[in-house]
Protein backbone atom coordinates (compact mmCIF):
# COMPACT_ATOMS: atom_id res chain seq x y z
CA UNK A 1 0.00 0.00 0.00
CA UNK A 2 1.10 3.52 -0.76
CA UNK A 3 2.35 5.92 1.87
CA UNK A 4 0.03 8.90 2.33
CA UNK A 5 0.23 11.97 4.54
CA UNK A 6 -2.78 11.79 6.84
CA UNK A 7 -4.07 13.68 9.83
CA UNK A 8 -4.56 11.51 12.92
CA UNK A 9 -8.29 12.12 13.21
CA UNK A 10 -8.84 11.27 9.55
CA UNK A 11 -6.64 8.18 9.75
CA UNK A 12 -8.92 6.81 12.48
CA UNK A 13 -11.91 7.35 10.21
CA UNK A 14 -10.40 5.57 7.24
CA UNK A 15 -9.08 2.74 9.42
CA UNK A 16 -12.55 2.30 10.95
CA UNK A 17 -14.03 1.96 7.48
CA UNK A 18 -11.32 -0.57 6.58
CA UNK A 19 -12.31 -2.47 9.75
CA UNK A 20 -15.90 -2.66 8.53
CA UNK A 21 -17.39 0.12 10.64
CA UNK A 22 -20.43 1.46 8.80
CA UNK A 23 -22.13 3.36 11.62
CA UNK A 24 -20.83 6.48 13.33
CA UNK A 25 -22.68 8.69 15.79
CA UNK A 26 -21.08 11.82 17.26
CA UNK A 27 -21.29 15.43 18.30
CA UNK A 28 -18.84 18.23 17.45
CA UNK A 29 -16.07 19.12 19.86
CA UNK A 30 -12.51 20.35 19.33
CA UNK A 31 -9.93 18.81 18.84
CA UNK A 32 -11.54 15.81 17.09
CA UNK A 33 -13.84 17.55 14.60
CA UNK A 34 -11.99 16.19 11.56
CA UNK A 35 -13.16 12.69 12.45
CA UNK A 36 -16.95 13.27 12.27
CA UNK A 37 -16.38 15.47 9.22
CA UNK A 38 -14.43 12.65 7.58
CA UNK A 39 -17.09 10.09 8.45
CA UNK A 40 -19.87 12.35 7.15
CA UNK A 41 -18.01 12.54 3.85
CA UNK A 42 -16.95 8.86 3.56
CA UNK A 43 -19.67 6.74 5.17
CA UNK A 44 -22.48 7.58 2.72
CA UNK A 45 -20.14 6.52 -0.10
CA UNK A 46 -19.64 3.04 1.37
CA UNK A 47 -23.30 2.45 2.23
CA UNK A 48 -22.88 3.48 5.86
CA UNK A 49 -24.65 5.81 8.24
CA UNK A 50 -23.25 9.01 9.69
CA UNK A 51 -25.48 10.79 12.18
CA UNK A 52 -24.72 13.97 14.07
CA UNK A 53 -26.55 13.41 17.33
CA UNK A 54 -28.20 16.05 19.51
CA UNK A 55 -25.63 15.43 22.26
CA UNK A 56 -22.81 13.12 23.27
CA UNK A 57 -25.32 11.41 25.53
CA UNK A 58 -27.59 10.65 22.60
CA UNK A 59 -24.61 9.64 20.44
CA UNK A 60 -23.36 6.97 22.84
CA UNK A 61 -26.88 5.61 23.22
CA UNK A 62 -27.25 5.44 19.44
CA UNK A 63 -23.98 3.50 19.53
CA UNK A 64 -25.60 1.19 22.09
CA UNK A 65 -28.60 0.61 19.85
CA UNK A 66 -26.49 -0.01 16.75
CA UNK A 67 -24.18 -2.35 18.64
CA UNK A 68 -27.15 -4.27 20.08
CA UNK A 69 -28.35 -4.57 16.49
CA UNK A 70 -25.05 -6.26 15.60
CA UNK A 71 -23.19 -3.46 13.82
CA UNK A 72 -19.56 -2.38 14.13
CA UNK A 73 -20.04 1.11 15.46
CA UNK A 74 -17.94 4.02 16.66
CA UNK A 75 -18.26 7.38 18.33
CA UNK A 76 -15.62 9.97 19.09
CA UNK A 77 -15.26 13.02 21.26
CA UNK A 78 -12.87 14.94 23.46
CA UNK A 79 -12.66 15.10 27.22
CA UNK A 80 -15.79 17.11 28.21
CA UNK A 81 -17.84 15.17 25.68
CA UNK A 82 -16.44 11.85 26.84
CA UNK A 83 -17.57 12.69 30.37
CA UNK A 84 -21.11 12.86 28.98
CA UNK A 85 -20.68 9.46 27.34
CA UNK A 86 -19.80 7.75 30.60
CA UNK A 87 -23.40 6.77 31.37
CA UNK A 88 -23.67 4.97 28.05
CA UNK A 89 -20.26 3.33 28.43
CA UNK A 90 -21.36 1.85 31.75
CA UNK A 91 -24.55 0.50 30.14
CA UNK A 92 -22.60 -0.89 27.18
CA UNK A 93 -20.25 -2.61 29.62
CA UNK A 94 -23.08 -4.06 31.70
CA UNK A 95 -24.88 -5.33 28.61
CA UNK A 96 -21.56 -6.62 27.19
CA UNK A 97 -21.88 -4.76 23.93
CA UNK A 98 -18.89 -4.07 21.66
CA UNK A 99 -18.14 -0.47 20.70
CA UNK A 100 -15.18 1.73 19.84
CA UNK A 101 -14.98 5.12 21.56
CA UNK A 102 -12.30 7.64 20.62
CA UNK A 103 -11.18 10.28 23.11
CA UNK A 104 -8.85 12.96 21.75
CA UNK A 105 -8.04 14.37 25.15
CA UNK A 106 -7.86 18.11 25.81
CA UNK A 107 -7.01 20.17 28.84
CA UNK A 108 -9.41 19.94 31.81
CA UNK A 109 -11.08 19.89 34.26
CA UNK A 110 -14.30 21.53 33.10
CA UNK A 111 -14.21 23.24 29.75
CA UNK A 112 -10.43 23.56 30.17
CA UNK A 113 -8.78 24.37 26.87
CA UNK A 114 -8.40 22.73 23.48
CA UNK A 115 -4.72 21.81 23.67
CA UNK A 116 -3.75 18.16 23.84
CA UNK A 117 -3.51 16.69 27.34
CA UNK A 118 -3.54 13.32 29.10
CA UNK A 119 -5.77 14.12 32.05
CA UNK A 120 -8.38 11.46 31.30
CA UNK A 121 -6.22 8.43 32.12
CA UNK A 122 -8.09 7.74 35.34
CA UNK A 123 -11.45 8.20 33.63
CA UNK A 124 -10.58 5.76 30.84
CA UNK A 125 -8.58 3.20 32.82
CA UNK A 126 -10.18 3.19 36.25
CA UNK A 127 -13.81 3.53 35.28
CA UNK A 128 -15.42 6.91 34.74
CA UNK A 129 -18.92 5.52 34.69
CA UNK A 130 -20.61 3.68 37.55
CA UNK A 131 -20.15 0.06 38.52
CA UNK A 132 -17.37 -2.53 38.30
CA UNK A 133 -16.32 -2.53 34.68
CA UNK A 134 -13.30 -2.05 32.46
CA UNK A 135 -12.81 -0.83 28.96
CA UNK A 136 -9.80 -1.89 26.93
CA UNK A 137 -7.79 1.32 26.57
CA UNK A 138 -5.38 1.76 23.66
CA UNK A 139 -2.84 4.60 23.65
CA UNK A 140 -1.43 5.24 20.18
CA UNK A 141 1.67 7.41 19.84
CA UNK A 142 1.25 8.65 16.28
CA UNK A 143 -0.81 8.52 13.14
CA UNK A 144 0.32 5.09 11.93
CA UNK A 145 -0.47 3.53 15.26
CA UNK A 146 -3.82 5.36 15.43
CA UNK A 147 -4.80 3.67 12.19
CA UNK A 148 -3.41 0.23 13.12
CA UNK A 149 -4.96 0.25 16.58
CA UNK A 150 -8.32 1.39 15.23
CA UNK A 151 -8.53 -1.80 13.16
CA UNK A 152 -7.45 -3.82 16.17
CA UNK A 153 -9.92 -2.00 18.44
CA UNK A 154 -12.90 -3.29 16.45
CA UNK A 155 -11.62 -6.87 16.67
CA UNK A 156 -10.99 -6.61 20.42
CA UNK A 157 -14.42 -5.08 20.96
CA UNK A 158 -16.16 -7.89 19.09
CA UNK A 159 -13.99 -10.67 20.49
CA UNK A 160 -14.65 -9.74 24.11
CA UNK A 161 -17.96 -7.87 23.73
CA UNK A 162 -16.37 -4.88 25.41
CA UNK A 163 -15.95 -1.14 24.91
CA UNK A 164 -12.54 -0.23 23.51
CA UNK A 165 -11.35 3.32 24.11
CA UNK A 166 -8.76 4.82 21.81
CA UNK A 167 -7.12 7.35 24.09
CA UNK A 168 -5.27 9.93 22.04
CA UNK A 169 -4.71 13.59 22.64
CA UNK A 170 -5.33 16.77 20.68
CA UNK A 171 -1.80 16.84 19.27
CA UNK A 172 -1.96 13.29 17.95
CA UNK A 173 -5.41 13.86 16.50
CA UNK A 174 -4.29 17.04 14.74
CA UNK A 175 -0.90 15.77 13.66
CA UNK A 176 -0.18 14.68 10.10
CA UNK A 177 2.33 11.94 9.37
CA UNK A 178 2.99 9.61 6.46
CA UNK A 179 1.22 6.32 6.98
CA UNK A 180 0.48 3.07 5.23
CA UNK A 181 -3.21 2.33 5.66
CA UNK A 182 -3.71 -0.99 7.45
CA UNK A 183 -5.32 -3.99 5.81
CA UNK A 184 -8.54 -5.43 7.22
CA UNK A 185 -7.79 -8.13 9.79
CA UNK A 186 -10.10 -10.56 8.08
CA UNK A 187 -11.44 -11.79 11.41
CA UNK A 188 -15.15 -12.50 11.50
CA UNK A 189 -17.20 -12.56 14.69
CA UNK A 190 -20.52 -14.37 14.82
CA UNK A 191 -23.04 -12.25 16.75
CA UNK A 192 -26.09 -14.30 15.84
CA UNK A 193 -26.41 -15.78 19.34
CA UNK A 194 -27.19 -12.45 20.97
CA UNK A 195 -27.75 -9.59 18.53
CA UNK A 196 -31.15 -8.02 17.94
CA UNK A 197 -32.44 -8.51 14.43
CA UNK A 198 -36.01 -9.63 14.97
CA UNK A 199 -36.79 -13.04 16.48
CA UNK A 200 -37.08 -14.91 13.21
CA UNK A 201 -37.00 -18.66 13.79
CA UNK A 202 -35.60 -18.31 17.28
CA UNK A 203 -36.54 -17.18 20.76
CA UNK A 204 -36.38 -13.43 21.37
CA UNK A 205 -33.04 -11.92 22.41
CA UNK A 206 -32.85 -9.34 25.17
CA UNK A 207 -29.99 -6.90 25.60
CA UNK A 208 -29.94 -5.52 29.14
CA UNK A 209 -27.61 -4.74 31.99
CA UNK A 210 -30.34 -4.91 34.61
CA UNK A 211 -30.54 -8.06 36.74
CA UNK A 212 -33.26 -7.92 39.42
CA UNK A 213 -34.13 -11.53 39.95
CA UNK A 214 -33.08 -13.94 41.27
CA UNK A 215 -31.23 -12.17 44.06
CA UNK A 216 -27.80 -13.31 42.92
CA UNK A 217 -28.31 -12.63 39.19
CA UNK A 218 -26.34 -9.40 39.25
CA UNK A 219 -23.55 -11.03 41.22
CA UNK A 220 -23.35 -13.71 38.52
CA UNK A 221 -23.18 -11.11 35.75
CA UNK A 222 -20.42 -9.27 37.59
CA UNK A 223 -18.48 -12.47 38.23
CA UNK A 224 -18.64 -13.27 34.52
CA UNK A 225 -17.41 -9.76 33.67
CA UNK A 226 -14.52 -10.14 36.09
CA UNK A 227 -13.59 -13.53 34.61
CA UNK A 228 -13.54 -11.92 31.19
CA UNK A 229 -11.33 -9.09 32.46
CA UNK A 230 -8.83 -11.61 33.89
CA UNK A 231 -8.64 -13.32 30.47
CA UNK A 232 -8.03 -9.97 28.77
CA UNK A 233 -5.34 -9.05 31.29
CA UNK A 234 -3.49 -12.25 30.42
CA UNK A 235 -3.92 -12.11 26.68
CA UNK A 236 -4.01 -8.53 25.48
CA UNK A 237 -1.27 -6.44 27.10
CA UNK A 238 0.72 -4.44 24.57
CA UNK A 239 3.86 -2.43 25.18
CA UNK A 240 7.03 -1.24 23.52
CA UNK A 241 10.55 -1.10 24.93
CA UNK A 242 13.41 0.83 23.44
CA UNK A 243 17.00 0.82 24.70
CA UNK A 244 15.66 -0.46 27.98
CA UNK A 245 17.74 -3.58 28.50
CA UNK A 246 21.07 -1.96 29.37
CA UNK A 247 19.55 1.21 30.79
CA UNK A 248 20.20 2.46 34.31
CA UNK A 249 17.23 4.81 34.18
CA UNK A 250 13.88 3.90 32.69
CA UNK A 251 11.46 6.47 31.31
CA UNK A 252 7.80 5.46 31.19
CA UNK A 253 5.23 7.35 29.15
CA UNK A 254 2.28 6.77 26.82
CA UNK A 255 1.09 8.48 23.64
CA UNK A 256 2.73 11.78 22.82
CA UNK A 257 4.64 11.82 26.13
CA UNK A 258 6.34 8.60 25.10
CA UNK A 259 7.60 10.21 21.91
CA UNK A 260 9.04 13.10 23.88
CA UNK A 261 10.61 10.50 26.16
CA UNK A 262 12.18 8.77 23.16
CA UNK A 263 13.81 12.02 22.06
CA UNK A 264 14.97 12.42 25.66
CA UNK A 265 16.49 8.93 25.68
CA UNK A 266 18.49 9.79 22.54
CA UNK A 267 19.69 13.05 24.10
CA UNK A 268 20.63 11.28 27.34
CA UNK A 269 22.50 8.52 25.52
CA UNK A 270 24.45 11.19 23.60
CA UNK A 271 25.37 12.72 26.94
CA UNK A 272 26.57 9.34 28.16
CA UNK A 273 23.61 8.55 30.41
CA UNK A 274 22.19 5.10 29.87
CA UNK A 275 18.45 5.73 29.67
CA UNK A 276 15.71 3.62 28.13
CA UNK A 277 11.99 3.77 27.47
CA UNK A 278 9.04 1.58 28.39
CA UNK A 279 5.81 2.54 26.64
CA UNK A 280 2.51 0.89 27.58
CA UNK A 281 0.32 0.65 24.47
CA UNK A 282 -2.61 -0.85 26.36
CA UNK A 283 -3.33 1.29 29.42
CA UNK A 284 -5.94 -1.26 30.47
CA UNK A 285 -4.93 -3.99 30.73
CA UNK A 286 -1.76 -2.35 32.05
CA UNK A 287 1.39 -4.33 31.17
CA UNK A 288 2.40 -4.61 34.82
CA UNK A 289 4.36 -7.84 34.62
CA UNK A 290 6.33 -6.75 31.61
CA UNK A 291 7.08 -3.38 33.19
CA UNK A 292 8.22 -5.05 36.41
CA UNK A 293 10.60 -7.26 34.41
CA UNK A 294 11.87 -4.28 32.38
CA UNK A 295 12.38 -2.27 35.56
CA UNK A 296 14.31 -4.95 37.45
CA UNK A 297 17.71 -3.67 38.49
CA UNK A 298 17.17 -0.11 37.28
CA UNK A 299 18.34 2.74 39.48
CA UNK A 300 15.25 4.82 38.95
CA UNK A 301 12.05 5.11 36.91
CA UNK A 302 10.80 8.47 35.67
CA UNK A 303 7.16 8.57 34.61
CA UNK A 304 6.32 11.43 32.24
CA UNK A 305 2.70 12.41 31.65
CA UNK A 306 0.72 15.43 30.47
CA UNK A 307 -1.26 15.40 33.71
CA UNK A 308 -0.69 15.71 37.46
CA UNK A 309 0.26 12.05 37.92
CA UNK A 310 -2.19 9.33 36.90
CA UNK A 311 -0.47 6.42 35.13
CA UNK A 312 2.34 6.80 37.67
CA UNK A 313 0.05 5.06 40.18
CA UNK A 314 -0.10 1.95 37.98
CA UNK A 315 3.66 2.09 37.48
CA UNK A 316 4.17 2.15 41.25
CA UNK A 317 1.74 -0.75 41.68
CA UNK A 318 3.67 -2.68 39.03
CA UNK A 319 7.15 -2.30 40.53
CA UNK A 320 6.06 -1.84 44.16
CA UNK A 321 9.12 -0.82 46.13
CA UNK A 322 11.67 -2.62 43.96
CA UNK A 323 12.67 0.53 42.06
CA UNK A 324 12.18 4.18 43.11
CA UNK A 325 9.62 5.94 40.92
CA UNK A 326 9.75 9.66 40.17
CA UNK A 327 7.20 11.70 38.24
CA UNK A 328 7.34 14.60 35.81
CA UNK A 329 4.03 16.06 34.68
CA UNK A 330 2.81 19.04 32.69
CA UNK A 331 -0.61 20.59 33.19
CA UNK A 332 -3.30 22.34 31.19
CA UNK A 333 -2.24 21.30 27.70
CA UNK A 334 1.45 22.12 28.14
CA UNK A 335 3.82 19.49 26.73
CA UNK A 336 6.88 18.25 28.62
CA UNK A 337 10.19 19.34 27.10
CA UNK A 338 13.13 17.12 26.28
CA UNK A 339 15.33 19.56 28.22
CA UNK A 340 13.49 19.17 31.50
CA UNK A 341 13.32 15.39 31.19
CA UNK A 342 17.05 15.20 30.42
CA UNK A 343 17.84 17.54 33.29
CA UNK A 344 15.75 15.46 35.71
CA UNK A 345 17.41 12.18 34.73
CA UNK A 346 20.89 13.72 34.81
CA UNK A 347 20.19 14.85 38.34
CA UNK A 348 19.80 11.16 39.31
CA UNK A 349 23.12 10.33 37.68
CA UNK A 350 24.98 13.04 39.55
Amino acid sequence: MAVTLMKGNEAIGEAAIIAGCRHYFGYPITPQNELPAYMSMRLPKVGGTFLQAESEVAAINMVLGASAAGARVMTSSSSPGVSLKMEGISYLSGAELPAVVVNMMRGGPGLGNIAGAQGDYFQAVKGGGHGDYHCIVLAPNGVQELADLTVKAFDLADQYRIVVIILGDGFIGQMSEPITLPAPSGRVFDKSAWMLSGATGRDPHVIASMRLAPDDALAHLNARLQDKYRVIEKAECMWEKSQADDAEFLLVGFGLSARICRSSVSALRKAGVRAGLFRPITLWPFPSGELARAAAGKKKILVVEMNAGQMVEDVRLSVLSSVPVDFLGTLGGVTPSVDEIVERVRSYAR
Binding site: N61, L64, A66, L196, A208
Partner: peptide, 18 residues
Amino acid sequence: VDGCEAAHGRAPAVATGI
Protein backbone atom coordinates in the same frame (compact mmCIF):
# COMPACT_ATOMS: atom_id res chain seq x y z
CA VAL B 1 -39.98 -9.90 20.65
CA ASP B 2 -36.32 -8.88 20.55
CA GLY B 3 -35.84 -6.35 23.32
CA CYS B 4 -33.32 -3.76 24.40
CA GLU B 5 -32.84 -1.86 27.62
CA ALA B 6 -32.22 1.87 27.42
CA ALA B 7 -30.77 4.21 30.02
CA HIS B 8 -33.25 6.68 31.51
CA GLY B 9 -34.56 8.94 28.74
CA ARG B 10 -32.42 7.43 25.99
CA ALA B 11 -34.92 5.07 24.37
CA PRO B 12 -35.30 7.21 21.21
CA ALA B 13 -31.50 7.32 20.78
CA VAL B 14 -31.19 3.56 21.28
CA ALA B 15 -34.11 3.02 18.90
CA THR B 16 -32.40 5.30 16.37
CA GLY B 17 -29.23 3.19 16.53
CA ILE B 18 -31.19 -0.04 16.06
